[in-house]
């Protein structure tokens, strides 16, 4: 198991390194950063002055390494717009985003996996139909629309929950449902398909022939094998939720990292965008790594490959 983990860790670091280079290059791919900073009315001399001030005149590799070493120490420079250190800005916003992401994926897993198992145990039953309806509806409904419906019903008409903000745990209930419901259909369908396949396999019959009860057959023998692709999917979705929940954050006025990214792109605030891209990529890398390790624990055959 340990060699496998080390190998995956090495791979993850390589990917992280590549991603850091790409996110740094974005600065130059989006045009002359000095000209963008100086503004439309700036003279050529002003642009040159800014270029020297920010160090854009030095070789790119030098700038990259400098940026990378600073980033590793947690220094992402200063936001062009807020005139504050980017690191602090992101750390503050990440709290909201991570709370929402963890709640969202937990909600998705806790509803999707049991529903998928139940649907697979009795295909074409009422439960299966209900699960199918929920997943189709979840896939078809845009998040912003579903979020608005929930706000109208539960916040405005019933008055049970606050419509926006991030002041208490109650503020997170509606966004969690919206974000979780977005991830739920795919997880549910994958759990159902996996369980259906595994339940037809010979080793399930062996378990029954041993005298194992249905609960044991389902959860000890079947689910462990069926859940493996679900783990990989959930990891990707978790990464997505931490980086891309811009829509949900906007609808519920939760000022998280996704919202910050959207704002910063609009304001051409390159150091912030760069840092956010790096942070979001790191989330993906970390979750993929964790999913690989978890899968290797679940399925011993993966450890050797």
């Amino acid at each position: 198991m340990l060699p496998f983990i080390l190998k995956r860790l090495g791979l993850a670091l390589l990917v992280a390194f590549t991603v850091s280079f790409i996110s740094f290059s974005l600065l130059f791919l989006s045009g002359d950063p000095a000209a963008a900073l100086a503004g439309e009315t700036a003279s050529g001399e002003d642009i040159e002055a800014i270029r020297r001030l920010y160090g854009f005149d030095r070789p790119m590799i030098v700038q990259y390494l400098e940026w990378l070493f600073a980033a590793v120490r947690g220094d992402f420079g200063e936001s062009y717009y807020f005139k504050l250190p980017v690191a602090g800005l992101i750390a503050e916003r990440l709290q909201v985003t991570m709370t929402l992401g963890v709640c969202g994926i937990s909600f998705a897993l806790l509803t999707a996996v049991p529903l998928g198992v139940a649907a697979a145990v009795r295909p074409n039953s009422i439960i299966d139909r209900v699960a199918l309806f929920l997943s189709v509806a979840g896939q078809a409904m845009p998040s912003f629309w579903f979020g608005l419906i929930l706000i109208v019903v539960f916040a405005i008409q019933l008055g049970w929950l606050p419509p926006s903000g991030a002041d208490s745990w109650r503020h997170f209930i509606l966004p969690t449902i919206v974000l979780g419901y977005y991830a739920m259909p795919a997880i549910m369908r994958l759990t159902r398909a996996g369980m259906l396949e595994v339940l037809n396999s010979d080793f399930i019959r062996t378990a029954r022939a041993k005298g194992a009860g249905e609960g044991r057959v389902m959860f000890k023998h079947a689910l462990r094998n069926a859940i493996i692709p679900v783990v990989s999917l959930a990891a990707v979705q978790m990464g997505f939720m931490l980086g891309g929940s811009i829509v949900v954050e906007s609808v519920f006025a939760l000022h998280g990292a996704g919202y910050l990214a959207w704002e910063s792109i609009a304001r051409n605030d390159l150091p912030t965008v760069q840092a956010l891209i790096l942070v979001f990529s790191m989330f993906y890398i970390v979750f993929t790594f964790l999913a690989d390790v978890l899968n290797a624990w679940l399925d011993p055959r993966m450890r050797s490959s």
Binding site: D202, F203, R205, A209, G211, H221, D299
Partner: peptide, 23 residues
């Protein structure tokens, strides 16, 4: 039946490659 299966009556299946749980 569950109490009998595996205890008083047991079964050996055809496919040894798939009749054991890989996990």
């Amino acid at each position: 039946m569950r109490a009998l299966r595996g205890d008083r009556m047991a079964m050996i299946f055809q496919e040894p490659m798939t009749s054991l749980n890989p996990a």
